[in-house]
Design a protein around this nucleic acid. Structure first.
Lengths: 216, 216
DNA sequence: GTCTATATCTCGATAGAC
DNA sequence: GTCTATCGAGATATAGAC
């Protein structure tokens, strides 16, 4: 399979379809647009995949498994809980910056409750090793028993981490407009904002979890 | 205008359209389905609103202004910063529990970058008093100057609060599947989960923001 | 495998009777 | 105001030549 120099037509179609479906969803996407972006004749979409839904299912599967496994990888090793958490937040934000439309796409398709999406999610999770949540839970429990962390539920904490990282990318247009409306005239510096976001998430979440020396 | 006993056809249409658009978005919604759910002939949709986009714009406007003003209201008064924050988290989660599809709908429609959605957002923000972000920023700054809170940026903190609260509702199917895959057999008790979520968000975010007696 | 031409279908919108 | 019938655009999908 040629991946770089001379991608197959099938590959070209899947790349273009990924872009279009992520931007517009299943019902909003047009076969003609996919063909145009792939630089091929529309008929070939049907020759290779027969139906629009088939292409869509392929994209959904690819996006799911790629995204989940990348999140798994983001959870690296570290000498301390603080290091692991910081690394995870950093890598997750990098991953999101590179794929800003993915979370919204996945959430949307699943909320719509399509049988295709749910099927693929279940299958993806079955193939996934799911080491991340288990390792995080184990790590937090261990640190709690050592008396370093407060009594927060690890699953709930994980959801808070994900929400804190993902929300901005899903709601970026809203955030921007609200910022513009409370700070008129000030241009939005995305790079600086994301750098600040990274630090702020870690500060709030790490010190939120860490056990207090003095309880107030 | 009859609101309860004998709603006008216009009202029936808008209610049905709200449901359908929130579930499926603009391109996924079908006029026939709106008519069916409203219990009304399809032609009447066009008689009252002429086009699908007109109905959509009405729904978008209603949802935006209702949701934003309810969030504003959620930010009540309180004797302390802790009380204000807890109240805000509680009310926001209640609002989300009552309207679980709204955030995803708004985020999705804005990300798609439709001119309609962006227009309505800008107009809504212009009409909104936007007291919430300003009040929060002021409150946090004041507490920081009094030495009660650490040096976290108030805007970043607000985004973290929103993300922590909203994420679960947007990603509920994913969260459920992941939970099921790491805790097989255990049924999901939504009520209990949300009660725990409420407490956990407050614990992490409040103590994350609050100034440490002892810095580690 | 690839193209042109066209069939088929879905859906928003309208005409016109009542 | 409400209904039946239908139009017409635009989209997916297929036939058939090359």
């Amino acid at each position: 399979m040629n991946t770089q120099a001379d991608p197959s037509k099938e590959e070209l179609i899947l790349r273009a379809a990924g872009d279009v479906f992520l931007e517009k969803g299943l019902s909003g996407a047009r076969m003609q647009e996919i063909a145009d972006r792939a630089g091929i004749n529309k008929t070939l979409l049907h020759y290779y995949f027969r139906t629009k839904k088939n292409i869509y299912a392929r994209i959904l599967g690819k996006v799911f498994s790629a995204f989940f496994s990348q999140i798994e990888e983001a959870f690296g090793d570290g000498s301390s809980f603080a290091a692991v958490l910081r690394q995870f937040i950093d890598r997750l934000l990098d991953l999101l910056a590179a794929n800003p439309r993915v979370p919204l796409f996945l959430m949307q398709e699943l909320a719509q409750g399509g049988a295709i999406a749910r099927d693929i999610l279940v299958k993806t999770l079955a193939h996934q090793r799911m080491t991340l949540p288990k390792r995080l839970v184990a790590l937090i429990r261990q640190e709690q028993q050592a008396g370093h962390l407060g009594p927060v539920d690890p699953i709930q904490f994980m959801i808070t981490v994900l929400g804190s990282c993902i929300y901005f990318f899903a709601a970026e247009p809203i955030v921007r407009e609200v910022l513009a409306s409370i700070q008129p005239g000030k241009p939005f510096d995305r790079e600086a904002f994301l750098a600040q976001r990274r630090q702020s998430i870690f500060d709030v979440l790490y010190y939120g979890l860490k056990k207090r020396e003095q309880s107030p």
